[in-house]
């Protein structure tokens, strides 16, 4: 499978603190690639580097064969990278459908067409009935799905999901796993996700990268990775058994 996203040797320092240290990995097309690691391991920083919020101090990020490191977030999005935020941030004063329409306008400049597209996506994420609600009034699971819907509306080739299952109840988690899997198999979407919920990662990911103190300590198929001593020691320790 050809590589969609290629990260080579990127590092990011925040005034002395090394948040991401020389990380390299490759996300093949139509994979579900998970990044796991304890709190403060640099997962979200890694995401922000890919999404263009920060530029890396060293290294390169290549997407569809083009360098995207150093581009602004909106430029990265236009190239085909959609993202969600760890702390959900829908536009609270806009309705659910307007939230998604804003995303859809990127590829459909006509508002009416963008709205139709938004309704389509909302239907797929079970939010169509709530399309008139204000986004700020939704429950957390709904807001998390709205965030995914909004990112999907930009019609990305790669979707970055930042802990979309954190804080959800098991049934809601299963629902989200189902959605992610469907997006991957039916739409052929490549997904890069950060996740804490191990159960979800194990069931959905095709490949896993483990970060610890900003460095990649293991990479491989999920079943193989959790058996590596370094991973068990640093992160899974008690929990994995």
């Amino acid at each position: 499978m050809p590589a969609l996203l290629e990260v080579t040797g990127i590092s990011k320092n925040f005034s002395g603190l090394r948040a991401v240290a020389d990380v390299s990995f490759t996300v093949p097309e139509s994979a579900i690639f998970a990044v796991i690691g304890p709190n403060g391991a640099g997962k979200t920083t890694l995401f922000n580097l890919i999404a263009g919020v920060f530029a890396p101090n060293t290294g390169a990020i290549t997407f569809c064969g083009d360098r995207i490191d150093g581009l602004r977030p909106d430029e990265v999005c236009r190239r085909g990278v959609g993202r969600t935020f760890q702390i959900v941030r829908p536009f609270p004063g806009l309705s659910v459908e307007d939230n998604v329409t804003v995303g859809a306008l990127l590829r459909h400049p006509d508002p009416a067409a963008a709205m139709r597209r938004a309704h389509d996506i909302l239907g797929r994420l079970d939010l169509f009935d709530k399309r008139r609600h204000l986004a700020g009034a939704l429950t957390l699971p709904d807001r998390k799905r709205l965030e995914v819907a909004r990112a999907l509306a930009t019609e990305p080739k790669l979707l970055l999901l930042d802990e979309v299952m954190a804080g959800l109840r098991p049934t809601e988690t299963d629902r989200m796993v189902e959605i992610i899997r469907k997006l991957n198999t039916e739409a052929g979407l490549t997904i890069l996700l950060i996740e804490h919920v191990m159960r979800a990662v194990m069931s959905v990911a095709t490949r896993v990268l483990v970060l610890h103190h900003g460095a990649a300590i293991a990479e491989g198929a999920p079943e193989a990775v959790v058996r590596e001593p370094a991973v068990i020691e640093s992160y899974l320790g008690v929990e994995a058994v």
Partner: peptide, 26 residues
């Protein structure tokens, strides 16, 4: 308000970083 520009303005008003992540040149 009904145009693309209007939608983008409101997105920026509500949350600028999120707007940027949706491909909007804020």
């Amino acid at each position: 308000l009904r145009s693309r520009v209007g939608y983008y303005w409101q997105a920026i008003r509500e949350d600028e970083p999120a707007a940027r992540a949706l491909g909007i040149n804020t």
